[in-house]
Design a protein around this nucleic acid. Structure first.
Lengths: 201, 201
DNA sequence: GGGATTATACCGACCGCAAGGTATGACTTC
DNA sequence: GAAGTCATACCTTGCGGTCGGTATAATCCC
């Protein structure tokens, strides 16, 4: 076994993971560094050795954890797809998994919290949204080329619309308590996606 | 002039207004009672005379200020309408007014923040969403009866969908900086609303 | 109606605590 | 031994909340 006692990469990773857990559940201002260090099994000294301050920790987590998590959930499954059914199936799946603390909800909550106050955090979050909209736009573009998606739609606008909708669902209906609302949104979303389908030739 | 020196109703109102300003801009945990009392021109003693604790202050603000504000923005204009054009015009208007700190953004941010942690605040916020979805559902129902809206739609599901979308826009595109994203969402929203129109006979 | 009494509204100092952050030192690794 | 990695102890600040006191308003009683 590895008998090394100081493994900076692992401690850094543990700190990021612990911070992510806390940020996802209680938001940025709501989480104390004490809970983070406790969860990570590291003390204050260790934390501030790896990150100069709380905001940097959050920024690192956003860039190194949250962004990839969103990509894994929403970009990659669409990477080589071009049909509406793939998107519909993806939404069904992701909506059913939605819960407080997951990546989609965390992204939504962090954005809602940071906007207006913590301008520096917004930058990293905004990048995630840009990438998300880009991936969705590319997907829709491919769908248009392949013929499965109607020619008249504007992929960029439609992507922004879809991202907003998903965020809205993550905010208004991400708890097991309001599963009914989530199902209602999903139902209407599927109807809406059908309107993007190109008329059968 | 009224020379009364103690006007409990006015001070209470001032406290609610001040709390609203702070909650809307920096969220629940992000606002200190010091800023609230300062803005209201009241001291801690006065605050805790009217409200037993911080959470009660927030609850009172949600019920007495935020809920009516949302109603004024989204329910009342639709109260006696039944055509899609009224809804489209309303969305155009409200989207253009969207900014950090307004009622719609505050509702979205507070909900995103409270869910998972402050269960007691969620109750009041949930009521607002219920009323919102109800008002929108009634509107769509009237539209169906009047004939302007397609018969096949499910008003309740569509209402949940629309509320989620608006919240999503308020979270992802409520700052003047991303007006482009907001316009994109609005554009797609209008296209989407058109699909609800009943086929011309 | 007018003074005494009680209840209401508000002030301002203070408390305990947890927050973010720092300084220093000890142990590891190269 | 020098640089890197982490622990311990501590500092300052601001938080939500309390408490004794005071000034104003409503009520009572004659």
């Amino acid at each position: 076994m590895n008998q090394r006692k100081k493994q900076p990469l692992l401690t850094r990773a543990a700190l990021l993971d612990a911070a992510g857990e806390e940020f996802s559940r209680t938001g940025y201002v709501g989480t104390g560094l004490g809970s983070v260090t406790l969860r990570a099994g590291v003390t204050k000294g260790g934390l501030f050795h790896h990150f100069p301050d709380k905001r940097s920790l959050a920024q690192a987590w956003i860039a190194e954890r949250l962004a990839p998590a969103i990509a894994a959930l929403w970009h990659i499954p669409l990477e080589q797809a071009a049909t509406l059914d793939v998107l519909k199936q993806l939404c069904r799946q992701r909506f059913s998994e939605l819960a407080p603390g997951d990546a989609t909800s965390a992204l939504s909550a962090l954005t809602a919290e940071s906007r207006g106050s913590d301008g520096l955090l917004v930058a990293g979050l905004e990048e995630i949204f840009e990438a998300w909209r880009g991936a969705l736009g590319d997907f829709l573009e491919r769908g248009k080329s392949a013929g499965g998606i109607h020619r008249s739609i504007k992929p960029a606008a439609e992507a922004a619309f879809l991202v907003a909708l998903i965020v809205g669902v993550a905010v208004t209906a991400n708890s097991p308590h309001n599963a009914a609302t989530r199902r209602a949104c999903l139902s209407s979303l599927e109807d809406y996606l059908e309107t993007l389908r190109s008329q059968a030739t």
